[in-house]
C-alpha cells in the first residue's frame, strides 16, 4: 500500500489526564502513519491507551501534545465546531457496543451522518445501497431492538461508511459478537475497504482480526512498541 501521502499522520502524541492530585500519562510520544486504503490493527492489553488513541485520531478527544494530521487537517488545532465537521466528513466510527439510535430505523441510522447540517451533495440512496452491501437490504425499516447483535454491528459499519470517509476507526468491533459473526464482520470490512478504498484502524484483542490486517501496531503503557 502507498504511504506517499498518508491519510493519517500521528507525531509524538501525548495525552495526560489529571485524576485528583495525580496526573496519568496515557499516551507517551506515539507516532505512526496510515496510508490510503491500509488496514491496520491496534493491539495491546487493557489500559495500554488504545481507546484513547482512537478517540484522538477520530476527533472525539484532544491531545495534550503532538500532532495528528487527518487527510490534511491538524486535529489538535481544530475548534469544537470544526471537529464536529471533521467527524462528519472524514471519520467513520464503529464501536464495540454498536451505539445505534434506538428510535431510528436501520436505514435512518445509516442516513444519520448525511443529515449533519452543512453537508451538501450527499446521495440519499447511498445508505440503502450500503445496507444492501452489508447484507441488510431486507431490514431497512427495522429498529435496533428488532436486529441481532451481528446485524446491529453491520448497520454500524454501514453508518460509518455512508459519508465515504477517508478513515474508518473501529474499537473492538467484534468484542460483542460470537466467533462466526465476528469473522463475517471482518471479511465485510476487508471487502468494503477493497470497494471503497477506506483506510481502517481497528483496535482489537482478536488475533484472527490482526492476521487479516496489513500491519499490526502494538501498544503497552501508552507507547507504541512494534509497528
Amino acid at each position: 500500500m502507498s504511504v506517499d501521502r498518508p491519510t493519517l499522520s500521528v507525531r509524538n502524541l501525548e495525552k495526560k489526564v489529571a485524576l485528583g492530585r495525580e496526573t496519568i500519562h496515557i499516551l507517551r510520544g506515539v507516532s505512526f502513519d496510515l496510508g490510503h486504503g491500509e488496514m491496520v490493527a491496534l493491539m495491546g492489553p487493557s489500559g495500554s491507551g488504545k481507546s484513547t488513541l482512537l478517540g484522538i485520531v477520530s476527533g472525539l478527544d484532544s491531545p495534550t501534545a503532538g500532532e495528528v494530521i487527518l487527510d490534511g487537517d491538524d486535529i489538535g488545532r481544530l475548534s469544537e465546531r470544526h471537529l464536529s465537521s471533521l467527524r462528519a466528513r472524514k471519520v467513520g466510527m464503529v464501536f464495540q457496543s454498536y451505539n445505534l439510535i434506538p428510535t431510528l430505523t436501520a436505514l435512518e441510522n445509516v442516513q444519520l451522518p448525511l443529515y449533519v447540517p452543512g453537508r451538501n451533495g450527499h446521495d440519499p440512496e447511498r445508505a440503502a445501497q450500503l445496507l444492501s452491501d452489508v447484507g441488510l437490504g431486507h431490514r431497512l425499516g427495522h429498529r435496533p431492538s428488532q436486529l441481532s447483535g451481528g446485524e446491529q454491528q453491520r448497520v454500524a459499519v454501514a453508518r460509518a461508511l455512508v459519508s465515504d470517509p477517508p478513515l474508518l476507526v473501529a474499537d473492538e468491533p467484534t468484542g460483542n459478537l460470537d466467533t462466526e459473526t465476528g469473522a463475517a464482520l471482518v471479511s465485510l470490512l476487508l471487502d468494503l475497504r477493497k470497494r471503497h478504498g477506506t483506510t481502517i484502524l481497528v483496535a482489537t484483542h482478536n488475533n484472527d482480526v490482526a492476521h487479516l490486517a496489513d500491519r499490526v501496531l502494538r501498544m503497552r503503557d501508552g507507547r507504541l512498541v512494534t509497528s
Binding site: A88, N99, I101, P117, R119, R159
Partner: peptide
Amino acid sequence: RREIALFKAVGFGPRN
C-alpha cells in the same frame, strides 16, 4: 447521554 454522544460522534454539534 450515550445517544447524544453518538450524535456528536457522527458529526452533529451541540447546537444540532
